[in-house]
Design a protein around this nucleic acid. Structure first.
Lengths: 366, 366
DNA sequence: AGTGTTAGCGCCAACGTTTGCGCAACACAA
DNA sequence: TTGTGTTGCGCAAACGTTGGCGCTAACACT
């Protein structure tokens, strides 16, 4: 008896009318291969093959082909990529994890990654980790659930513990900007060391001896290399390295503001500021304005990461420009390299040159 | 206990070891419900129910539950969201289509949308339409294939033809920034009319009579409303409207540069510039610098869309600030409102107030 | 008439999950 | 013994696609 009931239930089928757009039904049932197939009295396979452009390969006759594609168009058929992905084990999706999309630096990278992905026919799942390690880890988990085929990650922190799962699962990954020297993951970053060294040397050659650094997050690779570059420059010129000139530990605007304020109060001997990010520079600008210090007369400044507006500032700012777009570009290349040939051992890292853009925020002193 | 025995038995037949990371196999087969179920001699249903936190509801015994969740952890089980989405007809994904992520304005919106989506447990598929209508249309198609449950769209153009399919399919949509007054789609935008009027009035009250507008793409709603605001202000003060003062037709930097150059050459009577976007302002700045015009002494300028650096420019720029984050925020709200109650007729549009930030790029004349 | 070839398509089993039913098995009261 | 609950779980059917395999005609050769 129950069996009979079940059977009936199973047999209950909809009369499958074409999705007449007349009524505003709750949800117009999706057009599927099956619906088209039934309508045309052919099999789903046939429909599938026509609609995936395989008609030729499977020798579907011209009449059938046109019939199918016409009906598909008429029904406004949209293949379900979930089903497709499930069957094919291919999602054509990559994950992009970024600390803050609204930061122009990361936005630039994101932009380029988006373009590159599209060119390869891939879509992007975007996650904003808000400079927060935990959110980043969550995002990575989420992306795995969603079967992304690859990952472009701008890690927020200094820890890579949450990455081991992923690399064990052989998920193609590319790190951008920040990376982990001890983890042999492919990465692309700016040549922070050279960039910072050149910037510092510019300062030194302009007579500056007491140069403060507005750091970003300590332990992160960009920060460490920039510090090292700074120190190398000092060393080359036999200048002492004063650890107390290395202040701050976030790339954010707040930090730039506060640390500059502090510096202005406590270290009257500082003649130049080296801001390790555009946000830090912005904070410094704010502090400087508040304290009525003029650039470059009262204090010189160089910032990492160029900005469009840098040239039109009250004191056009000398900056270390990073090739954002190229970074995004290379990241995509490295990623698809891995995706397309998974057997090959992933490449090492790539360092892209920075360029020092000299404007007028550095004063020659002495 | 029985479970343990079963396990042993099972293991003797098929030594399916946990995904030992010892070897670098071609692709470690994904851990699935089935694998766990087989190993434990229970059914997939049970595993599914435990792993989706439904153990209680289905009265799974405590031993079974812990056994399942332990093994899942051990195997590093990751549920396949494609399969899940297919079954549940729920992808927990929304699409975000943006003309250019690297534009700070859109980046700000994207950022906020990303946050909002995450809070609702949704992921974002990001598409960059590159200010190109065709790419935008492609992106929309793609997102449909991928069964997104909703769409946040910053349309590039003035045409909405490619949207009709989507609204017919009852796909929840929110338009941001640019919208189509004749299409009754929910949108959120800045109150461009008022913003532009206020800006223009500031100019007028400072004695300016010949004010040129650097327009964005004509026919787009922000542009049209800004023009209208500009004209309203002129009208209120009984000033003539000179159509030849409305130049350009792109929001890009190039356009700002070129049109400013032209203006400088052909219209010596212009005393003030009203740039309809930050990029346009940037272009104007470049042109002005090249021509050695000083702001505000030689020419005044106001720009739509505030920038962090605006305050520190050679001439701190007076701007019409748009509440980017709030726009993103509201967009998400409107979208999830639709997603969560599909029966309700979508809301109309929401206009967010702009604020005029007066700095020093406007000179009092006469 | 018998055999081979080819064109044109259908069958069916996946892919990994979820869930409505329903079935044993046991407990306990009557 | 029968009846009535409860506990704990399994069956199997979806969800929409795809592709290997194989089937049936029809036609072409001997």
């Amino acid at each position: 008896m129950e069996i009979g009931a079940a059977k009936n239930k199973r047999l209950r089928r909809k009369p499958a009318a074409p999705p007449a757009a007349g009524r505003r039904g709750p949800t117009p049932p999706q057009t599927t291969l099956k619906r088209i197939a039934d309508q045309l009295k052919v099999s789903m396979s046939t429909v599938s093959r026509v609609l995936s452009g395989q008609a030729r390969r499977y020798r579907i006759s011209a009449p059938t082909e046109t019939a199918v594609s016409n009906l598909a168009r008429q029904f406004n058929f949209v293949p379900n990529q979930l089903a497709r992905g499930l069957r094919l084990k291919k999602t054509l999706t990559i994950g992009l994890v970024i600390p803050d999309v609204s930061n122009p630096f990361f936005a630039g990278i994101a932009h380029q990654v988006a373009l590159g992905a599209r060119q390869h026919g891939y879509s992007i799942l975007l996650c904003d980790s808000q400079e927060n390690l935990e959110l980043e880890a969550q995002a990575l988990g989420l992306l795995r659930h969603r079967q992304v085929e690859g990952l472009v990650l701008c890690p927020v922190g200094t820890s890579a513990a949450h990455l081991v799962d992923l690399v064990q699962a052989h998920l193609p990954i590319v790190l951008v900007d920040r990376y982990f020297p001890d983890l042999s993951l492919p990465y692309v970053a700016a040549d922070n060391l050279t960039g910072a060294r050149e910037a510092t040397e510019l300062l030194i050659s302009n007579g500056h001896r007491c140069i403060a650094c507005l750091q970003g997050v300590r332990g992160s690779s960009p920060n460490e290399f920039r510090v090292r570059g700074y120190q190398q420059a000092l060393a080359r010129h036999r200048l002492p390295v004063d650890a107390s000139l290395l202040v701050g530990d976030s790339f954010g605007e707040q930090s730039g503001y506060i640390e500059t304020k502090l510096l202005l109060r406590n270290r009257k001997d500082v003649t130049a500021l080296f801001a390790f990010s555009n946000l830090l520079a912005l904070g410094a600008l704010r502090a400087l304005a508040e304290e009525h210090r003029r650039i470059p007369d009262d204090i010189s400044i160089i910032a990492f990461d160029d900005q469009p507006y840098a040239a039109y500032l009250a004191a056009p700012m000398t900056t270390v420009s990073q090739p954002r777009s190229e970074m995004g570009d290379v990241a995509v290349k490295l990623l698809f390299d891995q995706i397309q040939s998974p057997e090959r051992e992933p490449t090492g890292g790539i360092l892209l040159p920075t360029s020092l853009i000299v404007r007028r925020s550095v004063k020659k002193i002495k």
